[in-house]
């Protein structure tokens, strides 16, 4: 399941719902991305996330589908927030449930790596020196590349 929303989410509740009623699940792996209060040497007071409604959902669904084709998963979840967020707030949540831990760990890692380079979100940081758009990082592209298949 995927969700794009402005409001916060409760990771405990989400994890509970993800595996509820399916006793074939042996493990759930999850990742939460949060707003840091620094970027390099600068203090960050807040950030604003913009996205492309319509394309975002389509890309997240494609990422989730890809994970389900690669690993034997019982359930997956991607929640991504948009709007204004302050340091300490949750931005993104991904989780993968499977009979065995390897698939859950790998799929969770894959979901967040792919999302970072494919889902159309853009962060603008409110830094001490002014507002600035976050630039895409080469290391994120590298992280995605290791999941590429021939």
């Amino acid at each position: 399941m995927i969700r794009v929303q402005e409001h916060d989410f409760d990771p405990g509740v989400e994890l509970e719902l993800l595996s509820k009623g399916n006793n074939a699940i042996g493990g759930v792996c999850s990742f939460i991305g949060m707003v840091r209060d620094f970027a390099g040497d600068e203090q960050i007071s807040a950030m604003t996330l913009e996205h492309y409604p319509g394309m975002t959902e389509k890309q997240l669904e494609a990422i989730e589908k890809e994970a389900n084709e690669r690993w034997p998963l019982d359930a997956t979840l991607i929640i991504h927030r948009y709007g204004r967020l302050e340091p300490g707030e949750r931005i993104v949540f991904v989780a993968a449930a499977s009979a065995h831990r390897e698939a859950a760990f790998e799929a969770c890692h894959f979901l967040i790596d792919w999302l970072k380079t494919k889902a159309p979100f853009w962060k603008k940081e409110n830094a001490s020196s002014g507002d600035q758009w976050v630039e895409a990082k080469t290391c994120d592209d590298e992280a995605t590349k290791r999941w590429e298949q021939d």
Binding site: L49, H80, F121, W122, K123, E135, A136
Partner: peptide
């Protein structure tokens, strides 16, 4: 048209 994405 948009810049390289920076979500996550």
């Amino acid at each position: 048209f948009f810049p390289p994405v920076t979500g996550g």
